[in-house]
C-alpha cells in the first residue's frame, strides 16, 4: 500500500518515512503540493498522504483543496502534519477535506494514534 509524504523539509520526510515504513507502507515523497499532485497522477493507489501546510509552489491547504475538488482521490486519507496550531487553521483544513490533523512537534505514538483514528494500524 502506498503512502505519500509531502513536506519541504527532508528531515521531516525522513522521520515520517521511518514511521510509515515500519507500518509496512511503500513510501513516496514530494517537497511541495504541485509535486505531490504529479505523484498522485502517476500512482492512483495512494492510501494515505501526510501533508505539511507551509511549502513553496503549492502549500498543503491548496493541495488538499485541489485533491478534494474531485472524487478521484476519495479513497485517499489526507492528514495535515503541520506547525500551524491555531483553531482556525484546523477548522479550515478539515473543511477543505483533511481527514485528520496532527500538530508539530509530535511523537511517534501520536502519529500512530492518529493513523488508528483513520483506521490504519498496519499494512498487510
Amino acid at each position: 500500500m502506498n503512502a505519500l509524504i509531502i513536506d519541504d523539509s527532508k528531515a521531516m520526510r525522513t522521520i515520517l518515512r521511518g514511521i510509515l515504513v515500519n507500518l509496512g507502507f511503500n513510501v513516496l515523497e514530494a517537497a511541495d503540493g504541485r509535486e505531490a499532485i504529479e505523484q498522485m497522477e502517476l500512482s492512483t493507489d495512494i492510501a494515505l498522504a501526510l501533508v505539511d501546510w507551509n511549502m513553496p509552489v503549492m502549500n498543503g491547504f491548496e493541495f488538499i483543496s485541489e485533491v478534494r475538488s474531485s472524487n478521484v482521490y476519495d479513497g485517499t486519507k489526507l492528514m495535515m502534519v503541520t506547525t500551524e496550531a491555531e483553531m482556525d487553521s484546523v477548522i479550515a483544513a478539515l473543511e477543505a477535506g483533511a481527514d485528520e490533523y496532527l500538530m508539530k512537534p509530535f511523537t511517534t505514538e501520536a502519529v500512530l494514534e492518529k493513523l488508528e483514528i483513520l483506521g490504519i494500524s498496519s499494512v498487510e
Binding site: A93, L94, Y101, M103, F106, A110, E113
Partner: peptide
C-alpha cells in the same frame, strides 16, 4: 498541551469540544 491533545484526540472532536 499540544503534545497531549495530539494523543488520540480526533481533530473533528478537538475543534468541537476544546478552546485554544
Amino acid at each position: 498541551s499540544q503534545l497531549e491533545i495530539n494523543r488520540g484526540m480526533p481533530a473533528r472532536l478537538m475543534v468541537k469540544y476544546f478552546l485554544k
